[in-house]
Simulated assay, not measured.
Amino acid sequence: MMMKGYMMKHLKALVTAEIFIGDLQRAYPEIDFEFCGYGHNFKMLTPEELKRKCRNVDIIISEFDTIDESVMRTAQKLKLIICCRAGVKTVIDLDAAKRNGIMVCNNVGRNANAVSDFTIGLILDLTRNISMTNRMIQEEILTTTKQTMPREYQDSLWGLEKESPYIAFRGRGLRNMTLGLVGFGCAGRLVAEKAGWFGMKIIVSDPYVDRTTVPKTVEVVEFEELLQRADIVSVHCAGGKDLKNMFSKEQFRLMKKDAYFINAARGYFVDESALIDALNNGDICGAALDVVNEEPMRPDNPLLEAKNLVITPHIAGSSSDTLRCGTDMVIEALESYLKGERPKHCIIG
């Protein structure tokens, strides 16, 4: 832990995370910052470059760089690592940090607002057939009117017959639909709040949730009950590999046939073959994935042939407010550290 009164002018910090540089410099003009690597030019430092850059630094502010025991041994003055993401175990050797007396902070929840916005967008997309019909128009499937409209209906240029888009792609209103959230962390809570604005009923399954913190408008249920009751199931778990294929054939069969499935959390939570079967067999109505098991996807990935499936390229957490929130969290962590206090999101130290 840093002692109060330590002069910031003695500190050197290596910043490889994407961050608002000007804000950080204005907050701490006395710290000697070096900005390089991914946050500077979207190119990762090699392990050798990272070791050379961090040799005399007190602080590292990183995002994707692997900081292992060899890096920590090289950076003999290093006392604080701030990683601008929630899950840091894949890039930072936490045991080594503990052995070397290095404090580690993360940015848990920095992209929660972005993910929740995106999830609401996927809900609207699925229930109102937005990207599906856009694709059909661009592929010229819906560009020819099948019959001439009566004079009084000339404003309905797409037709009013049974096969017209107005009838065939009639969507579902969100009011009174039940949204089932699997995981009720930072993102899940914001999804619940925003979905409530649409009049949705919210149920949650999360074995780790503190029920005293759950809003009265949200009902906590067991996982199987959620699958059976929800009109939309949206996944927001943080979990590890122990949750691999938590959504498989059995889980999709428990869901309503007119239910939708959304995953913007981890690709490995889903048995993709089971999801494809569920969609193609009509066991569920539709799905949206922002994450898949293999990224980027190969052009022959079977998911691309599944019915009623929207796929986006792992962008749910990417928005301007993610960068804004991440910068603010770094500044707050530095402020606490320099006061000799334990930062809010400290996980080691």
Rank of each mutant, 00 (worst) to 15 (best):
S116F: 04
D117Q: 15
F118G: 00
F118N: 01
T119R: 09
T119H: 11
I120M: 15
I120Q: 08
G121Y: 14
G121L: 13
G121W: 03
L122G: 03
I123S: 08
I123N: 07
I123T: 12
L124Y: 10
D125M: 12
L126H: 09
L126D: 05
T127G: 08
T127R: 00
R128S: 13
R128A: 08
I130V: 15
S131C: 10
S131I: 14
M132W: 07
M132C: 06
T133Q: 15
T133Y: 11
T133N: 14
T133H: 13
R135K: 14
R135M: 13
R135E: 13
M136K: 15
I137P: 00
Q138T: 10
Q138W: 13
Q138C: 11
Q138E: 09
E139T: 12
E139L: 09
E140N: 15
E140R: 14
I141S: 13
L142H: 04
L142I: 05
T143W: 00
T144G: 02
T144K: 15
T145P: 08
T145H: 02
K146T: 12
K146D: 06
Q147V: 09
T148W: 02
P150L: 07
R151I: 01
R151N: 08
Y153S: 08
Q154H: 12
Q154K: 14
S156K: 15
S156P: 00
L157T: 05
W158S: 14
W158G: 04
W158N: 09
W158R: 11
G159A: 09
G159W: 06
G159H: 11
L160Q: 12
L160V: 04
L160P: 03
L160S: 10
E161I: 02
E161W: 15
E163G: 08
E163Y: 09
S164T: 11
S164H: 07
S164Y: 00
S164V: 03
P165H: 06
P165L: 04
P165F: 02
P165V: 08
Y166F: 02
Y166N: 03
I167E: 14
A168V: 03
A168P: 02
R170H: 14
R172Y: 12
R172S: 12
G173Q: 15
G173L: 06
G173M: 09
L174F: 11
L174K: 04
N176L: 10
M177H: 03
M177V: 00
L179A: 00
G180R: 08
G180H: 09
G180N: 12
G180L: 04
G183A: 03
G185I: 01
C186L: 11
C186E: 10
A187R: 13
V191I: 07
V191N: 06
A192R: 02
E193H: 07
K194R: 05
K194I: 01
K194F: 06
A195R: 06
G196M: 07
W197L: 11
F198H: 03
F198R: 06
G199R: 03
G199V: 07
M200E: 12
K201Y: 01
K201C: 02
K201M: 01
